[in-house]
Amino acid sequence: MTGLSGVPEGVPQIRRGIGAIDWHRLTWQMRRSPLAVVGLVIIILVLIAIVVVPAWLPIDPNRINLRARLAGPSWVHWFGTDEVGRDILARVLHGGRISVGVGVFVVVVSASLGTMIGGLSGILGGWLDTLVMRLMDVVLAVPSLVLTMALAAALGPSLWNAMLAIALVRIPVYVRLARGQTLVIREADYVKAARVFRATPLQILRWHVAPNILSPILVQATLDLGAAMLMAAALSFIGLGAQPPAAEWGAMIAAGRNYILDQWWYSAFPGGAILLTAVGFNLLGDGLRDIIDPRQKARS
């Protein structure tokens, strides 16, 4: 029976459909996937470094000291200083908040919007579905960096606009994913039953579809965190992303490229930070996919 709130009663087993998350199984499997564990450890360390450490590190990332410009790594400045004497360690740590924050924002926005659109499109079907999917095809047909560049240029170069642009470009991926899964689930008996009981499409999405498509979305989202971060860095690198004096990793590499011959530390540390963080997200996402992907699960 479906209650007033649309909560299905008496059918708890459907929560563990093809794509539902089994946390117990997940943690058990994680131990068997060393790469995923490495990824997880990296992410935890990076998060500690960028969230906790700056709180008690007494260095202002934007303080200029023209007398200490372009100083190499030392006990005072572990990562050296930049062309106006700012401490690169402090900037890398603070910049991480921006870079990782961009990744999280983009993924949360595009995954939730994309899942909603894709799920509803799949449930409703018909011409609306066709229209939505064609539109997504068109968006997917434009090379993503070009679209983000054009959007960032149109809306004005700022980190916020770059984030919106990247989120927009990532939406179709989730729409397709969610719709594909929804089409399968739609035909399940319990969903047909819910329809008979006049559940609204939103209710079906919330109570029947969403729990079942969550894990592929989660895997995709984890993988996307790294990609979104890299894309934001790329936009900043060509001047369409984060603006001064904000420390963002891509922008720091862009500024440091002119000093790369004599002051390697300027671009090496932010570059290494991006690489490390993206590796963390991708290892974790890869491992999760291996564990969760039903096709591969059958063989493991």
Partner: peptide, 25 residues
Amino acid sequence: DHAVRSFAVIGISTPAFWLGLIVLL
């Protein structure tokens, strides 16, 4: 397998513009 997968992950995690600068140098 672990080596190939790690290599794959490092590949997609590397900012191409940064890598380009390094190999150029």
